[in-house]
């Protein structure tokens, strides 16, 4: 593509990485896989280290990070959406929050600068896991037919409206939900990466042509890097809180 007479690489070049090892097989490893492995390792390392230490009264270092993370998820995700009985989902939600956060934050780490969640595979897998969990929780706490009745025939709706409401609820609860959950994370990361790449290419080209004008897109690049840090944290938070809302919604029948 040609934008502002600059050579802009095709979108697929920005997101598809060549295989590094085991090329062509099912276990092919490329940059995205390595970033996910790093995210898994960092998340496990933080919580395993913090959990193995004899807990000191005043948390320092890794223990402090882990404890404030758990407290954050507990207070602003679990308590706000599910209440005290949702506390058994706290480990799952915390792990997911930190995994998504670390695989997003590589978007702004110098030298790596690729958000792993801008490939669709892992977001859709996480969303399907969430789908299985909230349906399982719904069936377990309300019974199969109770859960179907409560989610397809929401109480307090006039009888005739069920003709419209039921198909909409069927599609939105069981089909669209996991996709919108995955697409929200994926598209935000794609958009952020494209934004950073655009300003980086603009800066690079203007700098190479000897223009002083490179300062303007560079300032924008720095600004957008800060913004993308915010977006990475926010998307991890939103994914977690929506998961909590879905699980909480299927735990109780609506009144």
């Amino acid at each position: 593509m040609n934008v502002f007479a600059l050579e802009f690489p095709p979108v697929s070049h920005l997101f598809e990485w060549p295989d590094i090892i085991f090329s062509g097989s099912l276990f092919a490893v490329n940059k995205t896989v390595l970033i996910y492995l790093a995210a898994v390792l960092i998340t496990s390392a933080i919580f395993l280290t913090a959990g193995r230490q004899r807990g000191s009264l005043v948390p320092v270092g890794v223990q402090h990070v882990a404890e404030s993370g758990v407290t954050f998820v507990e207070e602003s995700v679990v308590m706000e959406t599910m209440g005290p009985e949702g506390k058994k989902y706290l480990p799952f939600l915390t792990t997911m929050f930190f995994f998504i956060l670390f695989s997003n934050i590589f978007e702004v780490v110098p030298g790596i600068q690729f958000p792993a969640n801008s490939r669709m595979a892992v977001p859709i897998t996480l969303a399907l896991v969430v789908w299985v969990i909230y349906n399982f929780v719904g069936v377990r706490s309300q019974g199969f037919f109770g859960y179907l009745k409560n989610s397809l025939f929401p109480p307090g709706v006039p009888k005739a409206l069920y003709l419209i409401v039921t198909p909409i609820e069927l599609v939105s609860t069981f089909v669209v939900r996991p996709f919108s959950l995955a697409i929200r994370l994926w598209a935000n990361m794609v958009a952020g990466h494209l934004l950073l790449v655009t300003f980086a290419i603009l800066t690079h080209t203007l700098w190479n042509n000897g223009y002083v004008g490179a300062a303007a897109p560079f300032a924008m690049l720095v600004l957008m890097t800060g913004f993308e840090i915010l977006v990475s944290v926010l998307q991890a938070f939103i994914f977690t809180i929506l998961t909590a809302v879905y699980i909480g919604g299927s735990m109780h029948a609506e009144h």
Partner: peptide, 14 residues
Amino acid sequence: MFLGIAFTEALALI
């Protein structure tokens, strides 16, 4: 508010 933003934003993302 974040929940509302997330639901509204989905349309733009699609």
